[in-house]
Design a protein around this nucleic acid. Sequence first.
DNA 1: CTTTTGACTAATTAATTTAAAAAGTCAGAA
DNA 2: TTCTGACTTTTTAAATTAATTAGTCAAAAG
Lengths: 205, 205
Amino acid sequence: MSVSATDQKQEQIIEAALKRFAHFGVAKTTMSEIADDLSLSKASLYYYFPDKTALVLAVGENILSVFLDEQSKALANAQSFEEGINAIIEVRICFGRKYFMMHIGDGQSDVNTADPKFKTALDHLKQTELDMMAAYIRQYQKEKVLKDVDAKETAEVLLDVLVGLWIAEIHIHQKSFVPTNELFERIRTKTKRMVSIFCDGIKRN
Amino acid sequence: MSVSATDQKQEQIIEAALKRFAHFGVAKTTMSEIADDLSLSKASLYYYFPDKTALVLAVGENILSVFLDEQSKALANAQSFEEGINAIIEVRICFGRKYFMMHIGDGQSDVNTADPKFKTALDHLKQTELDMMAAYIRQYQKEKVLKDVDAKETAEVLLDVLVGLWIAEIHIHQKSFVPTNELFERIRTKTKRMVSIFCDGIKRN
DNA sequence: CTTTTGACTAATTAATTTAAAAAGTCAGAA
DNA sequence: TTCTGACTTTTTAAATTAATTAGTCAAAAG
């Protein structure tokens, strides 16, 4: 089936919105600005998306889909268990750099991030990551590289710790709104150290 | 040297302030309330403490000192490496429950938490915890229980992860201002799972 | 019939002012 | 030396107003 003109236009809008969101954040981006970027009237935007929340959601789902894809590829191309985990970390840091601003302004945002649709999208992300990681662990268990620990539970712990180091670093060392290079470097260093020990913990002797 | 009357009074004030701070948080506690609790005038409080920040700092240092002490004891009484780590986790959760509210209201607090004195106190806490943990690791390295990994670096990673799991859980699952029981249970579960793998990672085969 | 728009209203957010509360001071009493 | 009531100053909260932005719609354009 061919892509309809409407779908194409929607994609253009998402692309334009993404640029603004990534740079200024959702709250600091108005629908008029996005429309202007496309030499369109604001009313036209509302022809393609019922409201701002829907647009933000579409942009978010777009990002998450690529995010999952790249993580999946990172694991698939790895030559060893630990290499795969480290590759995933690089993907995550790369996305963190690119889309950090999107998350900023949660507190006084104009778009309702408490909307169940956002929760659903994030739940789906988390679940998919979990399945992906659990499958990856099982793969290396079959090859007798890893101990026969519970794959799902282990994947859960690993992802929890990955998120934990990330959020803690932001929470503690983040003063300004724009993230510094050192922030991401610290996250990378701490995460890799942790992963090294973690992998030793589940590898067969 | 004996304890002066002034020191004694200061201790009473700290004790009364602690009760309010732990329950309502620093921002929601007024100097007048603390004074009233002690059947004292507000002006008298200011005789013993130059300003609210000084009082908060004194209370904080009090808590941190006990916190460090209990963690130290937990390690000292442990019968095995992992038991010590798990005991420390219990101490941390216990303190988290007790003093969670103190930290609430960072954003619109009336007391200047950016004051370098607070930073110093927290830096000292972190450094002492680090030294304590590194020494604990070295102890079990001598007994050939643990691998000869870099003790300081390993201690750093472990503490980072402990903090990370804690902050992430609060950041993600905390809606209301008063923390729920389940919050702490989740932190405990996740942390213990992680610790189990982590210990396996640094234990000798 | 699909897409676009300018001109509109409704809802949010930001800025300004005003009122209340809490921090902090001080002369003098106990 | 320790304590207090009455005071001033500073901060925070509430209320008001102004400005911006989200969202609508009838009608035009293709």
